[in-house]
Amino acid sequence: VTLFVALYDYEAITEDDLSFHKGEKFQILNSSEGDWWEARSLTTGETGYIPSNYVAPVD
């Protein structure tokens, strides 16, 4: 499982989006939707859509 880490803070715009803070880690559930990925936060356990350009793979 490839994990991703937030590079910036993000505040949800719609109820389907997931708010997060810089440094938060995610498991990507679906990355086939283009620039918005469905993800689960490993910090909160919540799922929602995140902007793919706000995250990077964890080394």
Rank of each mutant, 00 (worst) to 15 (best):
V1S: 14
T2F: 08
L3K: 05
L3Y: 12
L3Q: 08
F4G: 05
F4T: 04
V5T: 06
V5K: 05
V5R: 04
A6Y: 01
A6Q: 00
A6S: 05
A6T: 03
L7W: 03
L7T: 04
L7G: 02
L7F: 04
Y8M: 10
D9V: 02
Y10I: 01
Y10C: 04
E11A: 10
E11C: 13
E11S: 10
A12K: 08
I13A: 12
I13H: 12
T14Y: 15
T14N: 14
T14A: 13
T14I: 06
E15M: 11
E15G: 13
E15C: 12
E15N: 12
D16L: 15
D16N: 15
D16K: 15
D17M: 15
D17H: 15
L18I: 11
F20I: 05
F20K: 00
H21W: 07
H21K: 15
H21D: 06
K22V: 10
K22L: 06
K22N: 04
G23T: 02
G23H: 04
E24K: 01
K25I: 15
F26D: 00
F26V: 03
Q27P: 00
Q27R: 08
Q27H: 11
Q27V: 15
Q27N: 08
Q27D: 08
Q27L: 14
I28N: 01
L29N: 06
L29C: 08
N30K: 09
N30H: 08
S32Q: 13
S32L: 11
S32G: 11
E33V: 12
E33S: 14
D35Q: 11
D35T: 11
W36D: 03
W36V: 08
W36S: 06
A39S: 03
A39Q: 00
R40K: 12
S41A: 07
S41F: 03
L42I: 10
L42S: 04
T43H: 13
T43F: 10
T43N: 09
T44D: 03
T44F: 02
T44L: 02
G45L: 07
E46H: 12
T47E: 09
G48A: 02
G48T: 01
I50W: 01
P51K: 07
S52Y: 08
S52I: 07
N53Y: 10
Y54M: 11
Y54P: 01
Y54V: 05
A56E: 12
A56P: 01
A56H: 08
P57M: 09
P57C: 06
P57A: 09
D59W: 12
